[in-house]
């Protein structure tokens, strides 16, 4: 589904990703872990096409297309979803209106007619039931005045509505208490199936208790320095990132 080869990227002339290689297949859950500043969020933002991030080399194939050639909205329409670490507020724009616009823009991209009000509402009710989300949240202006938990639930609700092929969860657990993490993770798990994939980007292991990954990769200093299964995450939790740093530094002769 997603094939990243030697991806290098940076911001404001500073190179942050120094050659990422990663392959994700349909039905898989991958986790990318790493200490602060290792490039986790840069990877998520670069894949989603944020303008301030500059690709300096490498390639990304997404469902047979050159992802890096696509505009951010085309990436989204092709099925790439980014759950933001800090969801953006848009005052005055109701969450419902925002999601309806997004759903119909994506349909338009695929040559489908827009959903009418009735069709959209039906879909929304269905997903609301699935995601346990209340109407009042969706009537409020997008993310404005939302608590941390509400923002993240809203992200996952949008994911449910847009039905992406690949969902990237960027530090979705940051700022959440354990109950909120459980609610958000349940949402993600309900959306998993054999045709889609999830890439969890996180600093801590605790989210991975709920969204259990098939593969865990450790990102350090712009490179994936270690890959393994979920046991790797537990090891990191126990030993901290220092042992990885030491290993890498020894290998690189620092």
């Amino acid at each position: 589904m997603l094939n990243i080869r030697n991806l290098q990227a940076g911001i404001e002339g500073r190179k942050i990703l120094k050659g990422i290689n990663l392959e994700i297949k349909a039905g898989e859950v991958h986790a990318i872990m790493g200490p602060n500043g290792s490039g986790k969020s840069t990877l998520a933002s670069t894949l989603a096409g944020k303008k301030s991030y500059e690709v300096l080399g490498g390639s990304v194939d997404f469902l047979g297309k050159d992802l890096l050639e696509l505009s951010p909205e085309a990436r989204a329409a092709e099925g790439l979803f980014l759950a933001f670490q800090y969801p953006i507020e848009i005052p005055g724009l109701s969450t419902t209106n925002f999601i309806k616009t997004a759903v119909n823009e994506v349909r338009k991209y695929h040559g489908k007619d827009p959903l009418d009000a009735v069709g959209f509402l039906r879909m929304m009710k269905e997903k609301m039931a699935l995601m346990n989300i209340e109407q009042s949240l969706l009537s409020r202006p997008l993310n404005e005045g939302f608590s941390g938990g509400e923002k993240k639930r809203n992200e996952i609700f949008q994911m449910a509505m847009l039905e992406p092929k690949l969902a990237i969860l960027d530090e979705t657990d940051s700022g959440l208490d354990i109950d909120a993490i459980r609610i958000v993770s349940n949402g993600v798990n309900k959306l998993r199936n054999k045709d889609n994939a999830v890439l969890v980007v996180t600093h801590y292991q605790r989210l991975l208790d709920y969204i259990v990954p098939d593969f865990v990769h450790v990102l350090y200093n712009g490179r994936i320095v270690k890959s393994g299964t979920k046991e790797l995450a537990l090891e990191l939790e126990e030993r901290g990132y220092d042992f990885i740093k030491n290993e890498v530094n020894v290998e690189e002769g620092v």
Binding site: S52, E73, R75, F81, P87, I88, I90, I99, T101, Q158
Partner: peptide
């Protein structure tokens, strides 16, 4: 810019 990118990421031009 971040507001526009957020919309873009949801498929909105």
């Amino acid at each position: 810019e971040d507001q526009i990118f957020y919309c873009n990421q949801r498929g909105i031009d």
